[in-house]
């Protein structure tokens, strides 16, 4: 089985099958680039992902492993928006996978899934963040994300005013 070494920003190396790695659009491109530039077709590709740290990379690979036999979702499957996809793809395993994570990790996963082009993972993580926001008040959102308002003076009021213009009744 052809393998590939994927190295995180903090230097941890993961040895995975190329078949698995290729389910990430980014890794697929990287493997192909490596192939083209290498004389020896048997050489084991080594890919350094400078934007993802080990803890997050492990989670992405774990998710890929679980979903390795899913059909690959085309980028433009849904007509108007991507909202339907997440529900379709979310299994009990996914829910258990995400349940113990705090929001910081989920957000790092979003960035990683985006960077590595793993649509299914991007869908479920974004959906999770969305669920923490839709239907909540601004203060509840700030609490959930441990955020403080950094608006100065009447900026917050002005922002609401701008919004009022565009919100549908």
């Amino acid at each position: 089985m052809a393998l590939v070494r994927v190295i995180s920003s903090d230097g941890a190396a993961f040895l995975v099958s190329q078949r698995l790695a290729k389910r990430s659009g980014k890794l697929k491109t990287e493997i192909e680039t490596f192939r083209k530039s290498s004389d020896n077709s048997e050489a084991q590709p080594e890919i350094r992902i400078v934007t993802i740290r080990a803890e997050i990379l492990r989670l992405v690979l774990q998710w890929l492993q679980q979903h390795q036999n899913d059909p690959v979702l085309p980028a433009n499957q849904n007509e108007q928006d991507g909202r339907g996809d997440a529900e379709m793809g979310q299994s009990q395993w996914d829910r258990d996978f995400l349940a113990p994570m705090d929001l910081g990790i989920v957000m790092e996963l979003i960035l990683a899934a985006n960077h590595l082009e793993v649509k299914g993972l991007l869908d479920i993580t974004c959906k999770l963040v969305e669920s923490k926001i839709t239907g909540r008040t601004v203060d509840e959102i700030r609490t959930a994300f441990k955020l403080k308002s950094d608006f100065k003076g009447n900026e917050e009021e002005q922002t609401r005013l701008e919004n009022r213009w565009c919100v549908e009744n």
Binding site: M107, I110, L122, C126, T134, L147, T159, V167
Partner: peptide, 24 residues
Amino acid sequence: VVLPSVMKYVKKNTILKFRTISSL
């Protein structure tokens, strides 16, 4: 940083609500 990704999954009014959380 993640908002541009998440925005694709939410309704317009929620996108507008993101604006009132913080200046960032």
